[in-house]
């Protein structure tokens, strides 16, 4: 099980960030993700592996601030 956006998603061996986003299904174009404390940018979503029990923070590409 992994945790993202206050939701729990079932983990499977070889799960990538792209897989996780498909499971999450919110369709948002995130710019980056923090997997525990490891940072992954969007271009690496298809290949970046997620370990079991990971805590994930998704980061949008903020326009202002």
């Amino acid at each position: 099980m992994i945790r993202v956006k206050d939701r729990h998603i079932t983990w499977h061996e070889g799960m990538t960030v792209a897989d996780m986003l498909r499971e999450l299904g919110d369709g948002f174009p995130y710019a980056a993700a923090l997997i525990n404390d490891r940072y992954v940018c969007r271009r690496d979503f298809p290949t970046a592996l997620i370990p079991d029990k990971a805590e994930i923070i998704l980061i949008p590409g903020v326009g202002g601030g």
Binding site: Y30, A31, A32, L34, Y39, C41, R42, R43, I57, I59, P60, G61, V62, G65
Partner: peptide, 10 residues
Amino acid sequence: ASAVLGMQAA
């Protein structure tokens, strides 16, 4: 400030 890593990524 959570935009920092998004900007870095891009």
